[in-house]
Computed example of a mutant assay.
Amino acid sequence: MKQANFTNRELSVLSALNKEHLTTFQLLKRMDSVPMILKLYTILDELKEKGVVKSYMKKDTKYHYAA
C-alpha cells in the first residue's frame, strides 16, 4: 500500500481502522480532521473503492475495518 495514493484524512481513517473494527460514529468521534459525518462517508467510500476498507453488519450496526 503506497501512502502517496492516500490523503491525510484517508490515512487517519486507515490508521484508526488498523487498530480495531469501528462504527461510523466511533470513527467520527476519533477523527479530529473530519468534522462532518457526510465527509467521513465520502472518505469511507473512496477507501472501499481502493480496496483497503471493508464493512459488515452485526446486530443492525455497520462496522468498518482495514482490509
Score class of each variant (00 low, 15 high):
43 I>E: 04
5 N>H: 02
54 K>R: 09
33 S>I: 13
21 H>Y: 08
54 K>Y: 05
27 L>R: 06
36 M>R: 15
60 D>K: 14
66 A>L: 12
34 V>H: 11
27 L>P: 08
4 A>H: 08
24 T>W: 01
24 T>D: 08
45 D>H: 14
53 V>K: 11
17 L>S: 02
14 L>H: 07
5 N>G: 04
59 K>M: 06
2 K>V: 02
55 S>A: 14
51 G>H: 05
34 V>K: 09
58 K>I: 06
46 E>D: 14
9 R>I: 01
28 L>G: 03
9 R>F: 00
17 L>P: 08
18 N>A: 15
9 R>Y: 00
58 K>A: 15
57 M>F: 15
10 E>A: 03
65 Y>C: 05
67 A>D: 09
62 K>F: 03
6 F>W: 01
12 S>F: 10
5 N>P: 00
53 V>W: 10
34 V>N: 08
42 T>A: 05
27 L>K: 09
57 M>D: 07
58 K>V: 09
65 Y>I: 13
7 T>V: 00
42 T>N: 03
43 I>H: 12
2 K>F: 12
67 A>V: 13
44 L>D: 02
50 K>P: 00
44 L>I: 15
41 Y>H: 13
40 L>E: 11
63 Y>Q: 03
3 Q>F: 10
36 M>Q: 15
53 V>C: 08
2 K>M: 09
66 A>V: 10
34 V>R: 10
47 L>F: 01
55 S>Y: 03
67 A>H: 14
38 L>E: 13
23 T>Y: 03
15 S>P: 04
65 Y>G: 07
22 L>S: 06
29 K>N: 11
13 V>F: 02
23 T>H: 08
52 V>T: 03
7 T>Q: 01
24 T>N: 06
65 Y>W: 07
4 A>D: 09
54 K>M: 10
14 L>P: 04
27 L>V: 07
11 L>D: 01
34 V>L: 05
56 Y>C: 05
61 T>D: 06
44 L>K: 06
14 L>K: 07
26 Q>I: 06
64 H>A: 09
4 A>E: 11
35 P>V: 03
14 L>R: 11
58 K>N: 08
2 K>I: 09
9 R>W: 00
25 F>G: 02
38 L>Q: 15
26 Q>L: 07
58 K>Y: 14
20 E>L: 03
37 I>N: 09
1 M>V: 12
39 K>D: 06
59 K>I: 05
5 N>T: 02
28 L>F: 00
17 L>H: 06
54 K>T: 07
66 A>I: 02
